[in-house]
Design a protein around this nucleic acid. Structure first.
Lengths: 255, 255
DNA sequence: GAGTGGTCTAGACCACCTA
DNA sequence: AGGTGGTCTAGACCACTCC
């Protein structure tokens, strides 16, 4: 048992397994030996193997399935949300960039409306919309987007009440060929600029549940603000997406 | 004893502690009771408390310090890397956007050059630079950026060899007031557009070490491509940054 | 030295999956 | 039923921090 190495066994084993995965001993999708087998092989108790697997899980290297085993995570293709997603050039297709990207990858995209209604925006949203918080309400629409029935975005849209009222945006079904932004454009709000604020973090328990996130998968949060030709913000949308299936791309001019 | 709830004790305790943190029972920076105390309070063994704390750590809610205790993580202010970071308007100040942002927050920004030399770009970089991979080399510069001596970015820049040669970019010290992009501009490459591809994930062990990342902190990766007025890519930079201290902002026109 | 977290052992029971 | 992962107990030893 002379253990020359001073790093804990669980970490050492995690590193060894990770190396084995990296060199392809265990291919993506392959099952690792059972915890009992690994415990015997490394001469440690099963608990220690559990620790090692938890480390790999947190690193996003494996997924563990109840009663089945631990599997090397498959590299999922990224869905890229582009800076051009609001571009008029997509209007003609009648499809949203999300649906186009899904179709490209042979996936079926769809979304569900979770809620539509009047609500008080939080301070951050109120600030971006130049509303006085806790005094003015806004229209809130909550959606979830799916690719092949896997939830990939949780989307919350906020529109100042005076912009939204009387437009039909209060209906679950948006009554316009070009969606919400089609309606807003008819109200005189043509999108001139966007401001996207991007961050990443571990999900909170709610988000983990909504997005059915396995452990070790962070989320990307994009807070998007639409700005019209007068320079005023008239819509804020927050996207929360699983980071292992989504990316962003901004191809933009230098000003 | 009579445990009506079927969720594991460690998860239940983690949720209770998280709620206590959310409502402010434990303020940011405050120390949680010791694992032994918590074990007694919840009537479980210390190991179970350890599990609960690991969950909170992975969620990025607390940091645990050896021999000192578990502390509620302070909300660190974000350093925002903006889409305007290459804008000519910053040229006059002579400061990079990173240094400006650090100064705003009362932090001292600096960077170190890790390496400068000829290297073969990987397939992704070669593709973005329209080089034939494994045949053409490029200049690679590796830097680390610090804010108050905390490493926040790991940056790797690639420039095609025929663009870089004879420019002084092979020196550790870039011989130009406006940095790398000042030199490249003198070579006739004026930045007309940028293409930033953004993803997030858990760090690999290397990155965790370089950036001194505590557990539960994801990284944001930005692969930036500079495009000149002829529409050709002449520089690729990869930024890997700790997600709890960094964010991105793109304020751009809709085209 | 006292207190703290980190880890490990040995053994047990539970819940889920496959057959 | 038999295999798999998930969790918990009880107790032990180690390493780091602070006084």
């Amino acid at each position: 048992m002379a253990n020359e190495d001073r790093t804990p066994a669980s970490q050492r084993i995690a590193a060894e397994l990770r190396d084995a995965i990296d060199v392809g001993t265990y291919a993506p999708g392959a099952r690792l030996p059972s915890t009992r087998t690994l415990a015997e092989r490394y001469g440690v108790v099963r608990n220690t193997i559990d620790e090692a697997l938890k480390i790999l899980q947190q690193q996003g290297v494996i997924t563990v399935e109840w009663g089945r085993g631990a599997f090397v995570r498959e590299r999922t293709r990224l869905i890229r949300l582009g800076s051009d997603r609001y571009s008029p050039k997509y209007r003609e297709s009648g499809l949203s960039p999300f649906l186009i990207e899904c179709a490209k990858q042979g996936k079926t995209g769809r979304f569900e409306v979770l809620s539509v209604g009047k609500a008080k925006p939080d301070a951050g949203v109120a600030d971006r919309l130049s509303l006085s918080p806790s005094r003015e309400s806004a229209l809130r629409r909550e959606n979830v987007f799916y690719a092949d029935d896997v939830p990939v975005y949780r989307v919350t849209t906020w529109i100042p009440w005076d912009v939204a009222q009387g437009t039909g945006l209060l209906e679950a079904e948006v009554p316009h060929q070009y969606g919400i932004h089609g309606v807003l454009e008819e109200q005189g709000h043509t999108m001139a600029r966007i401001n996207d604020e991007i961050s990443a973090r571990m999900p909170n328990p709610d988000e983990a549940r909504y997005l059915a996130l396995p452990p070790g998968v962070p989320v990307i949060e994009v807070v998007h603000t639409s700005i019209d030709q007068q320079g005023s913000a008239y819509e804020v949308t927050s996207f929360v997406m699983r980071a292992d299936m989504n990316g962003l791309a901004y191809n933009v001019p230098v000003e």
